[in-house]
């Protein structure tokens, strides 16, 4: 295997508060290969978005990276000074946010925002940048792009705006795009279009994607691999097909079982009992053990590490036992 595009090792994110430090992301490691789409799933507060923000260097204070490293093409980027990080943002790593309605500056035409971004990262003249912007808009499926480029964001619908946002994120061909719940704010019928578009564009441009979502359906349709997060930790990383069909970790199993099925008639939707612990009271040992149906003694005492189980990696003591 050639070198991964992105290599996150032992990343920890902390929030210092008056009552001690909260660990929001606890020692996670994963890699992303060029052109690959990796889904990150988990409940709200599992640390998905924070992981995304830390990769692009936009972690909001007081949150801070407390340990570990992030490497892009073998270059360490988590400790770069702001002015160098800025050259990576947009150019090498792009980001798409949840709400397309508020992601665009309402006072500027979309053309101005596109041209501004293109000119920040390349030496194109205004005319060239504008031409490039029109092509991009056509590529993301905005009809009459040459005319629409001079329109303001409020003149576009939600789905169209998210297309513009995607065009903005892709405008200088970044190597990686972090899409933080790109479809959550959209209509269900639009969601599918946007996801298909994102998938197609990234394939055409060879862009890798980290797709953060809590929608398993989106992951199953789009991603190559999936990482499941729980209480700031990675509990399972594997190929999408594998994880959806035969999740190994009890939490991942619970998540997959909770997906409603069209073919099976059920009285009640399956759910995982209990709630995810707050950052203040993450239990010792495996963070999931109070809710786990197969909880053992060791789970309460020692934290399981992410271990290779066949093609997938799982952090669960029951599989450690199988191995030994």
């Amino acid at each position: 295997m050639n070198t991964p595009l992105l290599n996150v090792e032992n990343l920890c994110i902390e929030f210092p508060t008056r009552r001690g430090t909260l660990v929001a992301v606890d020692d996670i490691s994963f890699t992303i290969n060029p052109g690959e789409i990796v889904g990150v799933v988990g409940e709200s507060g599992a640390g998905k978005s924070l992981t995304g923000q830390s990769i692009i260097g936009l972690l909001e204070p007081p949150g801070r990276i407390a340990g570990g490293s992030i490497r892009l093409n073998d270059q360490r980027i988590d400790n770069l000074p702001e002015n160098q990080m800025r050259k990576i943002r947009g150019k090498k790593i792009g980001m798409i946010f949840q709400d397309p309605l508020t992601s665009l500056n309402p006072l500027y035409t979309i053309g101005k925002q596109l041209i501004e971004t293109i000119q920040t990262h390349t030496d194109m003249t205004v005319t060239q940048a504008r031409e490039h912007a029109v092509n991009l808009l056509e590529e993301v499926g905005i009809p009459a792009a040459a005319k629409r480029i001079d329109h303001y964001p409020y003149q576009f619908s939600g789905g169209m705006r998210q297309r513009v946002v995607i065009a903005l994120a892709l405008c200088v061909n970044p190597l990686l795009i972090i899409a933080d719940e790109p479809t959550t704010a959209l209509d269900v019928s639009i969601q599918a279009q946007i996801i298909t578009l994102l998938k197609k564009l990234c394939k055409d441009h060879g862009t890798a994607v980290i797709l953060i979502t809590h929608d398993m359906g989106v992951i199953a349709e789009t991603a190559d691999r999936v990482a499941v997060m729980y209480a700031g930790r990675l509990v399972e990383v594997g190929l999408v097909r594998q994880v959806v069909k035969q999740a190994a970790h009890p939490y991942a199993k619970g998540l997959m079982n909770a997906i409603p099925s069209l073919t099976k008639r059920v009285e009640k939707l399956t759910q995982i009992d209990g709630t995810m612990p707050g950052l203040k009271d993450i239990p010792n040992g495996c963070a999931f053990h109070p809710r786990c149906p197969d909880c053992m003694d060791i789970c309460r005492e020692k934290r399981p590490e992410l271990t290779d189980i066949g093609p997938t990696q799982v952090a669960c003591w029951s599989y450690h036992d199988c191995k030994h």
């Binding site: 936009l58 800025r86 980001m95 920040t120 903005l168």
Partner: peptide, 24 residues
């Protein structure tokens, strides 16, 4: 969000503060 997005696009602080924020 549009300021966050402007940062994520790698715009300079000057462009963000005086171009995008101040006008709003």
């Amino acid at each position: 969000d549009y300021i966050k997005f402007a940062r994520a696009r790698g715009l300079s602080n000057r462009a963000i503060y005086f171009g995008h924020a101040l006008k709003n």
